[in-house]
Write a protein that binds this DNA or RNA. Structure first.
Lengths: 139, 139
DNA sequence: TCGATGGTCAACCATTTGGTTTAATATATT
DNA sequence: AATATATTAAACCAAATGGTTGACCATCGA
């Protein structure tokens, strides 16, 4: 507990946000909302569950601050609210160096090897990186 | 659109990862592991809970692929395994354009177009979730 | 005003979660 | 061999989760 870094303290929402994201239905709902505002029943339709069930999922997302709703007549319009997602990403950034720096280091190493040994392929036998096969995505 | 369907439905890890991250104890354990390898009891001590309780948390992290352990004698050493965190961040990146500035937004859009053209695999847009849009409830 | 539509609420149910305590297992240490 | 240490396993518990159904409320359209 003493170890709890700022990141932990500054983000009291993380429990709710990560919990909300841990359900595939809710993630699908969020994705749906990237296309624009949707009503509760519009959000519910693709899923093979009752409207009440979907409504509960939406409420979880709302409770986590990931969805905002505005009621208009009997219709509830839902909107993506991304700020908390940004917080989640910010939390993850703390760990970025554990997958980026290793790749960057690998890049560096390869570049150096390329320069130093003009083509004597050396496989380090006791390499610390157990597997640097992590596929780098686009970019 | 299709790409995000892939993101949604091709990554069953996300359920486990986000669930694992939804607990503050587990997040603290992960943070602790950024400082290096730690044994189970080392990880457990800061928390006001039984060793067995902490052990269970570690197993959840392990099950989500966020922690690797190697046993040496009676001691279990735990190590951060960040790849799945990278996957989570990758998922979040889909939503980045909803919180970044307009300029970044433009950048993101261009990058997305880049990606989309990179894998010019198009497909019927009706490939939805695990469940067909079987209409609900005639009741 | 009446009926259909959009949604929530409440009660219920099975399963999971987060925690406990008390063994049990495996390895060190003396 | 005996004992201490590191950790898991098993049984248990209360609370939360994900889902259902049925009743209810509000509102839109005729």
């Amino acid at each position: 507990m003493l170890l709890n870094h700022m990141v932990e303290f500054q983000t009291p929402h993380l429990d709710a946000v990560f919990h909300a994201l841990s359900d595939p239905t809710r993630r699908a709902i969020l994705y749906r909302l990237t296309e624009g505002e949707r009503t509760v029943s519009e959000l519910a339709t693709p899923f093979n569950m009752s409207l009440a069930g979907a409504s509960k999922h939406i409420k979880v997302l709302e409770g986590a601050g990931l969805v905002r709703r505005h009621v208009q007549g009997r219709t509830h319009y839902c909107q993506l609210e991304a700020a908390r997602l940004a917080e989640a990403q910010e939390w993850l950034r703390t760990y970025e160096r554990f997958w980026t720096t290793r790749l960057d280091n690998l890049e560096e190493i390869l570049r150096e090897e390329d320069r130093a040994s003009a083509r004597s392929s050396q496989q380090s036998p006791s390499s610390t990186a157990k597997s640097d096969k992590t596929s780098r995505s686009t970019k």
